[in-house]
Amino acid sequence: MIPDKPTTIKEIAKILKISVSTVSRALNDHSSIGLTTKMRVKKLAAELNYEPNQRAIQFLHGKSFVIGVILPELSESFFSAAISGIEDVAYKRNYTVLLAQSHDDAEREKILVAKMKTQRVDGLLVSVSKTTSTYEHFDVFKKSNIPVVFFDRIPPIKDIHYVSSNLETGTFDAVNFLLKKGHRTIGMINGPNTLLASHERKEGYIKAMTANRLKFDPSLILNCDLSEEGTIAAMDTMLNHRRKPTAIVTFNDYVALFAMRYAKSLNLQDIDFVSYANLPIINYMDHTPIASVEQFPYKQGKKAADILIDLINKPKNESGTEQAYYNVIVESELILSNRK
């Protein structure tokens, strides 16, 4: 007969006339409990629809077995791939993922960080919003000795754990590729200055131009907010430049899509575009970038989750001195388009 209320370990112990600790150990396959006793306990537990008290387990281990994830937009293929990597690791290591989206809003991100703390997550994975310019809201985790690992969009601050793609070398390869194709006036529609990734792209651009003994023209690099309107505004400025670019490097595939669609509306078909992320959407474009920098989002998410759970399970540093920080760089790769 199925009981009306959840069965407890005490009730199982009473029916079998054994101690509560014996039942607990039997349910957890403790080596000190004989096979016969384990089978009796598990059989009765199944008959009574016993379910472990998660709160009691969390209290016993001092963990919630939940990790928080805050990312800009799950609708973007890049972050969908990253969350797949995170969830695969969490599943294998018996953790649950609590997911939230900042929608690229710094104030929303701050609220979400506070809520994650209230939900008592064991650790936090974050890809910061494009409007985030201060990072004090993460201090609440540091003060509580709860690990935070940033991935992809990482803040430009010291003493943090992070996993990111090598965008500087990826940009160098992209610009160098365009130069080898004969382009000499190359524009860049970059992201917001608040993102470290924007600075890394700029550095890669400058190094590629310098390596090819070409003068760097800072007016050919424009920042935008990554929206379609922002991209179009940047394109207007770029197309009216005294040195009209014959090729443009865009912050990501979405910006490339906005830019190419706008160029097409102006009957400009002779501009070559290179983007980042190498997302599946580029396979459905009428006019695709001639190359895209692969940033391996699944790999980034997987590695970040592994690091976070390792940090959660790592013995606390009793000396009070800070342990070494994980700074993992995933090498990017320039992927050439299959278009003819």
Rank of each mutant, 00 (worst) to 15 (best):
L222R: 00
D310W: 08
V41E: 05
E200M: 14
K158W: 05
K244Q: 08
F79S: 03
V113G: 03
F273V: 10
P192E: 07
T169D: 12
I154F: 05
L99S: 09
A277C: 03
T7Y: 03
G62C: 01
D152W: 04
R40E: 14
N267V: 10
R93Q: 13
E11N: 10
K38L: 07
Y135S: 03
D173S: 00
V121E: 02
E203T: 12
S77Y: 07
A291Y: 00
V97L: 06
D272F: 06
A304Y: 00
S84K: 13
I146V: 09
S332V: 09
K17M: 07
I67S: 01
T246F: 09
S337V: 00
Y325M: 12
T134M: 05
A174K: 01
N240P: 10
E203H: 13
F78H: 13
S164W: 00
K158P: 06
E294L: 12
D253Q: 10
P52W: 00
P315M: 08
K63P: 01
D4N: 14
K92S: 15
G230S: 04
L308D: 11
R243C: 13
V249F: 09
I70A: 15
V126W: 06
S332R: 01
Q300F: 08
C224K: 00
Y326K: 02
P147T: 11
A263W: 07
H241Y: 13
L99E: 04
K10D: 13
I18Q: 09
A56M: 07
S265M: 08
G320V: 13
G320R: 03
E109I: 06
A197R: 00
D173M: 00
E318V: 15
N267P: 14
P3I: 04
N53C: 14
A13E: 04
R184K: 03
K302T: 12
A305F: 07
E229A: 12
S32T: 14
P218F: 13
E51Y: 15
N53R: 12
L27E: 04
F273L: 06
V149I: 06
A291H: 02
R55M: 10
V249L: 14
S133Q: 11
F258R: 00
I70G: 09
L222A: 02
V23G: 01
K142Q: 15
I67A: 01
A13Q: 02
D310P: 11
A211E: 07
T96P: 09
I67L: 01
K202E: 14
Q300P: 12
I157Y: 04
D286Q: 06
I12R: 04
L178P: 01
G68Y: 02
F79R: 00
